[in-house]
Simulated assay, not measured.
Amino acid sequence: MIDSFQVFALAALAVSFAGISKAGFGSGAAFASAALLALVMPPKVALGIMLPLLMLIDLVTLRPFWGKWSWPDAKVLIAGGIPGVVAGGWLFSVANDDVLRLLIGGVSVGFVAWQMWTGVTARRIVPLWGGLVAGCVAGFTSFVSHAGGPPAAVYLLSRGLGKTTYQATTVLVFWVINIAKFVPYAFLGAFSLQTLWVDLMLAPFALVGAAIGVKAHHAVPERAFFAVTYVLLTLTGAKLIFDALT
């Protein structure tokens, strides 16, 4: 599984990136970490390794953002996210990976293009029913590829939240969704003694990444924060579309 220094270095980089992204930049690109691990190990193993580490990042980032979230928006996304997790668990063994990559990538790139067309200062607010749909898609894609960030961002970025409120809301939502994913993952055989041992080795990198992300969040101006989020959504969305088509 981790059988060379090169593989360990790639895994450490991926986990650190997940920590920085989830803790500081809206988790829009954190799912790229699972994709990086999947380059050097089976995707199911990569997903099993990443989930406990993502849960650890969620736990340590709850405190600095505690109570700063938009509870009405979080409630809507969680209400949609739980059924999405159930659907993801049901379809996990038969889902077509390339279709999922194309869907997630299309949503990510399409959303950024839509925001550029309408203007960032003239965001169209997505209604609450749209939040339920976004939450369901986020729960589903989070289960099958840890890629729930873009669908949630489509809803949250349209609500005109400040950067800290936006970030705190994503932390809360995915803390709940990742907990909901744990038991189905265990039943589907995603965890083993080997994956847990790898998690122990990589946990320090997750914590360091999360600490960097929290500090970067408070240091980066609001306009730059959302610009970075849009860039990350575009890059990761384009990469998913490329992977699906090739």
Rank of each mutant, 00 (worst) to 15 (best):
residue 1 M to F: 05
residue 3 D to N: 11
residue 6 Q to G: 03
residue 7 V to A: 13
residue 8 F to T: 00
residue 11 A to Q: 02
residue 14 A to R: 01
residue 17 F to L: 06
residue 17 F to S: 12
residue 17 F to E: 13
residue 19 G to R: 03
residue 19 G to H: 09
residue 20 I to F: 02
residue 20 I to S: 00
residue 21 S to L: 00
residue 29 A to N: 08
residue 30 A to M: 02
residue 32 A to K: 10
residue 33 S to L: 01
residue 38 A to L: 02
residue 39 L to P: 00
residue 50 M to R: 04
residue 53 L to W: 13
residue 53 L to C: 12
residue 55 M to I: 15
residue 56 L to Q: 07
residue 56 L to K: 07
residue 62 L to Y: 07
residue 64 P to R: 00
residue 66 W to F: 14
residue 66 W to C: 13
residue 73 D to F: 12
residue 75 K to M: 13
residue 77 L to D: 10
residue 79 A to Y: 10
residue 80 G to K: 06
residue 85 V to P: 07
residue 96 N to Y: 03
residue 97 D to P: 06
residue 98 D to I: 03
residue 105 G to V: 03
residue 108 S to H: 08
residue 109 V to C: 05
residue 109 V to E: 06
residue 118 T to V: 10
residue 119 G to D: 04
residue 120 V to F: 11
residue 122 A to E: 10
residue 123 R to T: 10
residue 126 V to N: 12
residue 132 L to K: 06
residue 133 V to R: 10
residue 135 G to P: 08
residue 138 A to M: 09
residue 141 T to H: 11
residue 146 H to E: 09
residue 154 V to F: 14
residue 157 L to H: 13
residue 159 R to P: 15
residue 165 T to F: 04
residue 171 V to L: 06
residue 172 L to W: 08
residue 177 I to Q: 09
residue 177 I to R: 11
residue 180 A to C: 04
residue 183 V to W: 01
residue 183 V to H: 00
residue 184 P to I: 01
residue 185 Y to E: 03
residue 188 L to D: 04
residue 189 G to I: 01
residue 189 G to D: 03
residue 193 L to C: 10
residue 195 T to E: 11
residue 201 M to L: 14
residue 203 A to T: 05
residue 207 L to V: 07
residue 208 V to S: 04
residue 209 G to P: 02
residue 209 G to M: 03
residue 209 G to Y: 02
residue 210 A to Q: 02
residue 214 V to T: 03
residue 215 K to L: 04
residue 216 A to L: 13
residue 217 H to Q: 10
residue 218 H to M: 02
residue 221 P to N: 00
residue 225 F to R: 11
residue 228 V to Y: 09
residue 229 T to E: 15
residue 231 V to Q: 13
residue 234 T to G: 07
residue 236 T to G: 12
residue 236 T to V: 14
residue 236 T to Y: 06
residue 237 G to R: 10
residue 242 F to R: 14
